[in-house]
């Protein structure tokens, strides 16, 4: 019987060591993204605008041309890249804070303009890089370093459902929410990313994937407990699914 040996995607840099904390889903997300770039043969034709957050050094891992955008501005820079070089594959990889808090203006308008760009948003319900403060997707009741007794509506208002908002934009061709808590869901996540890039390369509009991810360090959980939290608490509010797909007959 043939044995499948572990193989790194070609789009990952040789010898690159992820700087994410052990058990963090960022690493899984970057890996499946690299696999998709391999499978679609896009690696040598891609430019990414990276974001500020735990993903800031993604350019040290993925072997594509990259520019590091200021916090929240990745989709503005991606727009500049795509408008200047429309034949390139352009993507962003952003945290929930980067995409939906400081960058919400850039994100929504990029979707409304229907830019042929793929945006991936890692939703870990916190500002991971700065030490786990309350962010735009922090759940009601969730304790963070700036919501010491838990998120209450009085002081903090409500978390944003990003994939649903992006689906409402007329320029959006595809918007989905996925998770990485089981092998089956990782496969689904990869399919969604692949679909988004395929739609981008057909020039059909803005494509978006929100990935429910763990932050074991700031959640103060083991990776296993963290995935339980994704399933039991995050998915209650942030329901996985395809919210828009203009290439499909029916969506959620």
């Amino acid at each position: 019987m043939a044995v499948q040996t572990f193989k790194l995607p070609k789009s990952l840099k040789e010898g690159a060591k992820f700087s994410f904390c052990p058990g963090c889903d960022h690493g899984v997300a970057v890996r499946i993204l690299a696999e998709v770039l391999d499978e679609l043969g896009l690696t040598e034709n891609t430019i990414t605008a990276t974001s500020i957050g735990c993903s800031v050094t993604i350019y040290d891992f993925i072997n594509v041309d990259a520019i590091e955008a200021p916090h929240g501005r990745a989709l503005a820079e991606a727009t500049g890249i795509k408008r200047a070089r429309p034949d390139k594959c352009v993507f962003t990889y952003q945290g929930d804070g980067d995409f939906a808090s400081i960058g919400i203006g850039e994100s929504l308008h990029c979707a409304l303009r229907g830019e042929n760009i793929t945006a991936i948003c890692i939703n870990n319900t916190t500002y991971g890089m700065t030490g786990g403060q309350l962010g735009p997707t922090t759940l009601l009741g969730q304790k963070t370093t700036t919501s010491p007794t838990g998120r209450n509506v009085e002081y903090y208002g409500y978390p944003i459902k990003i994939a649903e908002h992006i689906a409402l934009c007329d320029g959006t061709a595809y918007s989905a929410r996925v998770s990485l808590d089981t092998v089956a869901n990782i496969k689904k996540a990869k399919q969604a990313i692949k679909k988004a890039f395929e739609i981008q390369m057909k020039g059909l509009g803005f494509t978006f994937i929100e990935i429910l991810s763990t932050c074991p360090t700031n959640w103060k959980m083991t990776p296993e407990q963290a995935h339980d939290r994704v399933r039991n608490q995050m998915m209650e509010v942030f329901k996985p699914g395809v919210y828009k797909d203009i290439t499909a007959e029916k969506t959620v």
Binding site: A69, P70, A76, E77, G105
Partner: peptide, 10 residues
């Protein structure tokens, strides 16, 4: 904010 960052991207 967006305009100048678009210039940077281009």
């Amino acid at each position: 904010l967006a305009a100048i960052n678009m210039v940077i991207g281009a």
